[in-house]
Design a protein around this nucleic acid. Structure first.
Lengths: 197, 197
DNA sequence: GTTCGCCTTGGACGAGCGCCCAAATTCAGG
DNA sequence: CCTGAATTTGGGCGCTCGTCCAAGGCGAAC
């Protein structure tokens, strides 16, 4: 049992990659088994040999890509020496692609799909928690106040800006970096914060 | 020309409302003409009498709902007396619904659909610009630095947090308000900001 | 009462869908 | 060469899809 199984594994991984690309460019619910098979260069029937169902294939493909994204961010974060540098590194990802980054589109599609798929939601919640923890640790080491919550807000803001960039290409890292930098200060709120109700 | 045309207008508006609800609960690409017709209580063929195509119906429904959301936010904003109060008002929307707010889901779905529909993108870009301008003016009046960009970041952060709330129900307004409050300070960056490269 | 417009009905059309499966292919081990 | 397990093929199943359209209803105008 060697060559046969090995080729099988390769086909399986090609299907996963094709599925991830197609979700990004067509949308989660617009991807069909036949499209994935054609993109991967295999016969249509193979999809249901390697995967239990189409949703299962899409979920596995999305989780795989997103694990890569989080791992990449982890690694980049570990090289940052200041909180501001860490912020810059995260924002650099924002500019990496001109208008329609496949990876960030996949994340957005998966986020919406997760609200209708319990298993996918659990997997993504785990990834989000891992990312927040890593970023929060980094922020704490730099004296940023309320690091855990700040990391949660930063993560959400990054995803939100990736979404908004579709509508406004000028939402670049240089435009938002000075604003987000304010999040990293050890500010004492005196804007009238907490008007009680 | 009275009763007949008037009933027609009512049917049209029922179709729009049904479409908006269905997009939120099933996803943009999972909504079919027959589903919308059934939900609106009319015959299937009526959809293509009142609308040119299914995507046209969905886009019009989404834009209509989102105009209402922005108008509501505008009005709420105009009653805020401080920047912190304005922030609180925006965040209150975040908590209004337990886990799956139909309106915010619709916004997210529309944002992704807009990346594949030029007309929808233009309409949403206009709405986003209007919201940012209103919020930016409000922030400027309160002495918040870089108000326009801060408004853009705040808007993106709000959308991002609505997305992330699907994965983490604990991402409530009380958890993020103190962090976002830092955005409203007139902070001088001394976290090492702008390490030049 | 007849004509005229708009609104409405319900079904037809071809296409594509997810999933399934019997038969063909491949190849290491006997 | 043969066996047997894994992989691959291509087409079939029942279904839903978006769109279209001929035919019917129905109130207003004359």
């Amino acid at each position: 049992m060697a060559t046969s199984a090995e080729r099988g594994r390769r086909v399986r991984s090609r299907l996963l990659q094709a599925a991830a690309v197609l979700v990004a460019e067509q949308g989660w619910n617009a991807v069909s088994t036949r499209m994935v098979a054609e993109r991967a260069g295999v016969a249509p029937g193979l999809v249901h040999y390697h995967f239990a169902s189409l949703p299962a294939l899409l979920a596995e493909a999305a989780v795989q890509v997103m694990e890569g994204v989080v791992d990449g961010a982890d690694q980049a974060l570990s090289q940052a020496r200041t909180a501001a540098q860490a912020l810059e590194l995260m924002l650099a990802d924002l500019d990496r692609y001109p208008g329609d980054d496949p990876a960030s589109r996949l994340v957005s599609e998966a986020m919406l799909a997760a609200s209708r798929d319990e298993g996918l939601r659990a997997a993504m919640a785990g990834l989000l928690d891992r990312f927040r923890t890593r970023l929060g640790d980094r922020l704490a080491a730099q004296g940023v106040p309320d690091p855990r919550r700040t990391a949660a807000v930063l993560a959400a803001a990054l995803d939100g800006m990736m979404l908004h960039r579709t509508l406004d290409p000028e939402l670049t890292s240089t435009a938002v970096a000075p604003v987000l930098g304010r999040l990293l200060q050890d500010g004492t709120p005196d804007t009238g914060q907490e008007g009680h109700r």
